[in-house]
Each structure stands twice: as C-alpha cells, then as structure tokens.
Design a protein around this nucleic acid. Structure first.
Ligand SMILES: [Mn+2]
Ligand SMILES: [Mn+2]
Length: 634
DNA sequence: GCATTCC
DNA sequence: GGAATGCAACGCTTA
DNA sequence: TAAGCG
C-alpha cells in the first residue's frame, strides 16, 4: 500500500541560517522620502554566505546553488573585501546585450553569463547587521564590494519610484521593489517594509481567431485575437497579441486552431481591429485558453503590450473573464448592524502584527470578507476562544465558557466537563459561531484563529472527519511536509478515501478525510494511528509518530489530535504567527515542491476565494465510511 | 478585551 | 479611580 | 506519579 521512500531523495543539506526577507505585492509604488527603490531582479534569489573565504549560495527554499553558479561563487570571493559575511542578492542571467533576462536564465545555454546583484548585508565578520536600518546596511555593503568586479554588482537604489517603474517597463523588466530606508531586515518574513510593484499584469484569455501574417509569418499567422467572457455568457474582444511565440509554437497553435475555425465572427458586433483588414481575420470557436502578459488595461478595456506566454489547459473556457485586482477589503465602521443586532468594534487601529503593519481592523475586514465561505465550516461546532488582546506576539489565554457579557444572539451549547483533578463536574457553555456577526464578535474579542470541534452539537460523539495533522520538526521544512502529505494521500487513495489538504499556517499541513458521522472518535483515532504508523515505518527519517520532541526527526503525523474535545484551527483561519499566514485549502495538484505557505496572506486568500470559490466545500458534502478501509488494512 | 475585584 | 486579575484542560507518552 | 506534548 505504501511506497518505499524514494532513493533519489536528497539527504539533509546545508541550509543558510538566514531565510530571505520577502516583499508584499502592491498595486502602486509608494511615495515620499521614507522609501528607496530598486529594480526587481528576475533570477534566483540567493543568500550568499562567505565563511573564511569559502562561498555558499543558498536558494529561497534552502537548496544549495553553489554548484549551479560556480563562476558567481568564485567571483564573490574576489569581489568582497572580507572573508566572512552574509549577503542577500539575486543571481541573474544576462542576454546577448548584457541585460538581465529571465528567459536566458531558463534556457541555461552553455556559456550563459551569470551575475549577482547584491542588495543587502545580513552579517559581517560574525556580527549580525539585520537590526541596522536599511540605508546603513546598504552603505556597508557598498563599502565591502569591489566596484570593478563585473560579476558581483551592487544593486543601485533610486529615489523616484514612478520613474524607475516606467524605465523598468520600457526595458521589459519585471518590476520595482520599494523598501523603507529605516527598516530592519526580517529574515523569512513577508513585511510591508518591502513592496513589490509589477510592470506587467498577466491572466488567461480565450483565442477567438487569428490574423494572416506578414513577411516571414505570411505562411502562418500574425496575431491571436483575444477575448474574455463577460457577464451573461457574452464574449468581449480585448485585443490582438502578435508576440511571445516562436515558429514552433505557431505551428502547434495552428494545428489546434484549424479544427475550431468558423465562418462568422463569434463577437457581435464584429470588433474593429487596428491595422487589420476584415478579410485577413480567421475566426475560431473561442475554446482555447492562453496565458498572456500585458502592460495594463486601457480605459476602453483593451490590452496594452500583450505578449503570449503559453496555453492553459487547466482553465475552463467559460471561466475566462477579466480579472480585477481584488481591492483590499473595506475598512470597517466602529459599529455593525445586522437585523436589529448591533456589534460594537473596538481598537480597530491597534497593531496586531506590528512588523507587517496589520491592524485589528485589517483582521476584522478580512474575516468579514471571507465569512461567506468560512462560516459554514464553523456552524454548530463548539468553539474554543483563544484570545490575543494585544496581537499575535502578546500574551494569550483560552476561554471555553462563554463570558457573561457575550451577547445573547450568539448561541451557546452546554457540555458537562469532568475535571479529573478535582473530580468536579461543571457546565461549560460553548459559544457557536453560526453567522458573520458572531464571527466578528469573536475576532473583536481578540481571537486570531478559530478553533472548533471535529463534531457538531447534534451528534457530539461522531466526528465529521479524520484529521492527519502533519507537523515538521526543526530538522526538516515544508518540502518534507509536502512529501509526507503525498504519502498520506497515496495511502488514502489506495483504500478509496477522498481527502482534502490545507496549509495549517507556516510549515504544517492538515489533511481532512470527511466522514458520514457513523464513527466514534475511538475509531477515527485508531484509523489515523494505523495509517500514520504504516507510513512512519516505511519512511524512517522522513515521517514519524515519535512523540518526544527531542528524539523526533522528520515530519510528525500526529494521530493524537483525533479525540473528543480536541479542536482544530479552521480553514481560512489567520494564524497567530509572523507574517499572518492563513490556513488555506489546496488542490492536491498544488501540493508540490515549491509551494510557499507564507504566500497565503489575507489579501492573497481573498483573491483566491474570488477566483476559485471554496476549495474546502467538499469537506462539507463528502460523506465517507471507514469500514472498507479498516477491512482492507486488516 | 473586558468584567470583576482589590487596593 | 486605577491597577491587578481571570479567562481550559485532556489523553497520551516517556522518565 | 510527574512532566512534556499538542
Ligand atoms: Mn499541526
Ligand atoms: Mn500537531
């Protein structure tokens, strides 16, 4: 049932002690004297560690890049006026004209020239510099670098962000990074002190036709006619795209487009295309979906500077619409009303994540926006409050018994708890978060994540799911967690059980196996124990069920969490951790190397929900039995 | 975060 | 009036 | 039986 651990899996590798600081995506460049601006270099982010003159390059995922870029590694030794330091930078390939080019990088042709753009200094001769302000770190970095070295370059900073963005767009660069001049370096964090502003946008489009080519392309086509669906099943023309494909890709596209040809335009009315004669357009059924990069939408809904990136076969043609950046959720008024109920909100401006610039108001706004998909996962489940009145880094406390001052429009359910210590029985009134207003009351009370039982009040002894709780030990990271998640999926597939993965926050994964509420907690617990034990035995060093932290190596498959009264941080919960990561539902196809759980910020998750709906809806509707699986496992 | 209790 | 305080708890494992 | 663990 369970495959042997892949022999080719690399062993534990050298990791840099520093993870790179990450930038938040922003819509526009900030202004003012607090910011400096750099080109967003498009290559491999690398932490460069120089120890006694010995160089190591480490990727964002913690992989060793030294062997991949030997020339850069050698030149680093030459270019630095010290033998011990840690830098942050980007290794980029140069094209024929000596400019940074990502496509040159991907082709990695022999003789491709690589350079390092260094932009930060994290440590010099054993003393960390991460707590110095950025302008000071950059000053010291510049001093350390030999200006004459052509391979190790100092990433220039500029004062005018708008002008730099414009220049970057002209040169076909990806964008601009804005950094606060007085900010500290926050390793591994995605903070508002660094903003990434892109020159180009990108989305899927329908191919609705093509135009006859000119010159060398007269035998094939000149451009693709692009379209999107708009409101009630209509089709809207957005522009033509005549670049981004080579001769081979044109051939492939023609092969796919010819069978879709039609005599008449799929648009009504027929759009006017600049510089194209009507007779030169071949219309096709709008069924093929392609990815296109472009500078911006014009005011009349056309693409400026579109460039073809490839076909998309993972997107249904009727889902292709114009994507608008989801605006950040509405700021909240201090008082919300819903059918006669009034909720007063307090301290909206309080910094809940000071480093990231996230306030309690931001958190409430996120939960209000995500409530339609979130609340169904909380409904009728006893709720344990875990309260952080002063933000994620402050002190916190648990509260199960609903406080007296909780409004009466939040439902409660009483359970008797038997404290074994005192052998005393007492009644606990668990709150039930059954609607948006109740949810916001909890968040206003300082709840950051939302912890609920696995069972609902009408059948409290029959859980709705089995949980596989994957927790990596310090010696492994998210990459290993992903490997173990896939092993769990393989095992569940083999016994015919559907399962739903989500990130748990920073490094862990939760896998839920939805049930028809016929099993007891005892049964779900022993089922998860059997599966976890089998995986741990066949993959020593990678997966484990070892309880003691000290002895644990690899990823813990924590079967212990399947028990009455245990709680789980729900899907869409923001976790009380650095970077405010969200527990995000995943498609199994996404559970692959390179997945970055830190990228699931509140804003990113709102956009994702907008695009994908609730990827965890299946947990609410799938009703499975463990019977066949338990028999198969003997 | 807030009601309650202590000084 | 202002500061201090409480606000959960269990099963499982190993020492 | 106590302490560590989540
Ligand atoms: Mn976990
Ligand atoms: Mn756990």
């Amino acid at each position: 049932m369970i495959k042997k651990r892949d022999q080719s899996r690399p062993g534990p590798r050298e990791r840099s002690r520093y993870a790179p600081m990450l930038a938040m995506l922003a819509e526009r460049v900030p202004t003012g004297p607090d910011w400096l601006f750099e080109v967003k270099w498009d290559g491999y982010r690398s932490i460069v560690t120089l120890t006694g003159g010995e160089v190591a390059l480490t990727s964002r995922q913690g992989n060793d890049l030294t062997g991949r870029f030997p020339v850069v590694a050698r030149e680093v030794e030459q270019a630095l006026k010290t033998t011990d330091c840690v830098l942050d930078g980007e290794v980029c390939a140069l094209d024929e004209r000596g400019r940074s080019s990502f496509s040159a990088m991907q082709q990695d042709a022999p003789g491709t020239r690589y350079v390092l753009y260094a932009f930060d200094l994290l440590e010099v001769e054993g003393s960390p510099t991460v707590d110095l302000p950025l302008h000071e770190r950059r000053r010291r970095l510049e001093e350390l670098l030999d200006r004459r070295n052509e391979t190790v370059r100092f990433s220039e900073a500029f004062e005018d962000g708008e002008a730099l963005l414009e220049a970057a767009a002209e040169q076909g660069l990806e964008g601009v990074i804005a950094k606060r001049v007085d900010s500290r370096y926050l390793p591994g964090r995605r903070a508002r002190d660094w903003l990434k502003v892109k020159t180009h946008d990108e989305q899927e489009f329908l191919i609705a036709g093509y135009t006859r080519g000119q010159g060398s392309r007269s035998a094939s086509f000149g451009s693709l006619v692009l379209a999107v669906r708009d409101e009630p099943g209509g089709l809207r023309y957005v522009g033509n795209c005549g670049t981004g494909f080579g001769a081979q890709e044109i051939e492939r596209l023609l092969g796919l487009l010819r069978p879709l040809e039609r005599a008449t335009s799929p648009f009504s009315p027929v759009p006017k295309m600049p510089k194209v004669r009507k007779a030169d357009v071949v219309w096709v059924e709008p069924e093929l979906v392609c990815q296109v990069e472009f500078a911006e939408w014009t005011h009349d809904g056309r693409l400026r500077a579109p460039s073809y990136r490839g076909l998309r076969d993972d997107k249904r043609p009727d889902e292709v619409v114009r994507e608008r950046a989801t605006p950040p959720p509405e700021p909240l008024p201090p008082e919300l009303r819903h059918g006669g109920r009034v909720l007063k909100l307090s301290n909206l401006g309080k910094a809940f994540w000071p480093e990231e610039g996230i306030t309690k108001g931001d958190l409430l706004a996120y939960y209000r926006a995500v409530a339609p998909v979130l609340v169904p996962h909380l409904r009728q489940r006893p709720f344990t409050m875990k309260r952080y009145p002063d933000g994620w880094a402050g002190p916190h406390f648990f509260q199960k018994d609903a406080p007296k001052h909780m409004p009466d429009w939040i439902k409660r359910q009483a359970y008797i708890s038997t404290s074994r210590a005192s052998r005393e029985k007492r009644v606990i009134d668990y709150p039930l978060v059954n609607d948006e207003l109740a949810l916001l009351w909890m968040v206003n009370a300082g709840c950051i994540d939302l912890n609920v039982w696995y069972s609902r009040i009408d059948k409290p002894e029959r859980p709705d799911w089995v949980l596989f709780d994957l927790d990596p030990s310090p010696d492994v990271g998210f990459a290993e967690t992903i490997e173990v998640a896939l092993l769990v999926k393989t095992a569940l597939d083999a016994v015919g059980l559907a399962s739903f993965p989500k990130t748990s926050g920073s490094e862990g994964i939760h896998i839920l196996v939805p049930l028809a509420r016929r099993h007891t907690y005892d049964e779900t617990r022993s089922f998860s124990e059997i599966v976890a034990g089998a995986i741990a035995r066949t993959h020593p060093g990678l997966a484990t069920t070892e309880w003691s932290k000290a002895k644990r190596r690899g990823v813990l498959i924590d079967a212990n969490q399947n028990g009455e009264g245990k709680t789980i941080a729900s899907v869409y919960s923001v976790r009380p951790k650095a970077g405010a990561p969200v527990s995000t539902p995943l498609r199994w196809e996404e559970v692959r190397a390179g997945l970055d759980p830190g990228a699931f910020t509140m804003q990113a998750v709102l956009e994702r929900v907008e695009r994908e709906g609730d990827l965890y809806a299946g947990v609410l509707t799938t009703r499975q039995s463990l019977g066949p699986a338990l028999r198969a496992l003997g």
